[in-house]
Amino acid sequence: MNRLLALIGVLALASIPLLDIGNYYLHLLITILIWGFIYTSWSIMGRFGLVSLGHGAFLGIGAYTVTMLWNQIGLSPWLGLPIGLGLSALVAVVIGYPCFRFRIVGHYFALVTLALSEVVRLTIVALRDNTGGSLGMTPRSADTANSLYALQFADKETFFYIALVVWLFGLWVWKKVDRSMSRYALEAISEEEDAAASVGINVTRTKLTITVLSAVLTALGGVLYAQYQLYINPETVSGIAISLQIVFAVIAGGMYVQLGPTVGAVFTLMLAESLRIMVGHDVHGLDGTIYGLLLVLFIIFMPKGILGGLLSWWEKRQSPPPSAKPAPAE
């Protein structure tokens, strides 16, 4: 039943470009898919209490590595991709291992990751000769409008399908983790590290594995974003602002359910677009203020997020004895 629904959903999504809905809406959809994927990547570790405020670092590493390799030595993004992902995995290990080995958890871990995202942003700015600094950079145009080699496509339809596949891949990984034994180990670790170690769980390795997985997927999201937008700058793919946006979106959508982060992407995008259309850019900082206010409201009134909240409400209606567990994804 669920499989059938999922299949119908995917087919429906895949047929959208045939409807000729126009570039604006297609752009919104692609944006939702890319960010939905990135948010899903974050929540793969975030749902286990590993709150990273620095995932912008991995976005930036992915996006900049691939773009710089392409622009400077003409390396195809297909080859740059594994290098970018490998680099982000390396950074995740360098940051994660000492944190997990020496039990830097909770707020302290969040602070370390927050610093990481700034380090990456400042590094990009400092290497302005190669990265364009704060002005950002544009991947050099391919020789033809549509180039598979350069991973650049003039029409949005192609990119829609690429984004769709990557987003589905993210959901698949989420599900894999959700059904694995590691999920139980991670839930155990998130509650009681000592007790988890006492029943034989390798706490450091388990946390490190999920962190690397999350980081690599996030970097993939960064590459996808760069190839789609064909423009990146330090603010949009690294630093505190984007890192916090990821966390906000996931909290809004719901980090404990499979489609929660994607709902978060829809929600934040609609919020940003409606703010842009209604008030424009005249009132400086208004969007930030509204984000902050909503974040507080969500944490207080809807800790499971929009989708998580809806699903547990629905579950309660279906079965009179309420279950204490967070609602499983479809």
Partner: peptide
């Protein structure tokens, strides 16, 4: 453990 340390999010 002297003070029980259950994994509360698991059944």
């Amino acid at each position: 453990f002297q003070i029980p340390r259950p994994f509360k999010r698991l059944s």
